[in-house]
Amino acid sequence: MKVLRTYLIAVGIWYLCNLVLLWPSVYAGPLRLIYPGIALGQGTPSFGLLLDAWLIVGIQLAAIGLVALWGARDPLRYWVLVPVIVLTELVGSAWDIYSVVWSGEALWVGLTTLAAHAVIMAGAWCARRAMERDIV
């Protein structure tokens, strides 16, 4: 259960960090690097709406992160969080591919976030395998 506990803690902390990274006052600056050459309308109500939408994503990730941290206390009971995390990462991966191909996201940003999704999903696979070994 140690691998699963470590995984839940790592993902929980990472998802809480995403809340900080997506906080409007933090995220507003890097957006022009993430979407170079696109007029994002900084200072307009539409830009505020964009930042608010990303804040909601951060809050949702933080909620999953808090549950993962809570679940790390009893990983066997909370192992069902792993598929939730994997599905969250698959949706995020699809969004990143869409953003690079059709929405002008910088390639380096898309590849970096895809790598992060892959690491989290690989960690899920390792945690699941370790859990299966511990149970059998």
Rank of each mutant, 00 (worst) to 15 (best):
Y78H: 14
G123L: 07
T44K: 07
L21E: 05
G29L: 10
I38G: 00
R133C: 04
M121C: 07
V109I: 12
R129D: 12
D52F: 14
V101Q: 09
C17L: 15
I59G: 00
A53C: 04
L55C: 01
A115R: 04
I34C: 03
T88R: 08
L66P: 04
C126E: 07
V82A: 01
A122N: 02
E132D: 12
C126V: 08
R77K: 13
Y27S: 03
P24Y: 10
V57G: 01
G110T: 07
M131C: 08
P30Y: 10
Y98C: 02
V101L: 15
S99E: 11
D52S: 15
V57R: 05
V100L: 10
D74P: 01
S103P: 00
W95C: 07
V82Y: 00
S103Q: 15
G104F: 10
L66Q: 04
E105Q: 15
V26E: 04
Y27A: 09
V67E: 03
P30A: 05
A115I: 14
A115L: 15
W70K: 11
P75D: 04
G29F: 11
L22G: 01
L66T: 09
L66N: 04
G58L: 03
I34P: 01
A118N: 00
G58Y: 07
L49E: 12
L33D: 13
A115G: 15
I34D: 03
V84M: 05
L90D: 01
I56L: 14
N18G: 10
L69F: 10
L21C: 06
A116K: 01
I97M: 09
V57W: 08
P24T: 06
G110L: 08
C17W: 13
Y27F: 15
Y78R: 02
L90S: 03
G110M: 05
P36R: 07
L81G: 02
A130G: 03
T112I: 02
A124D: 01
G92P: 09
S25T: 14
G104Y: 08
L114A: 01
W95G: 06
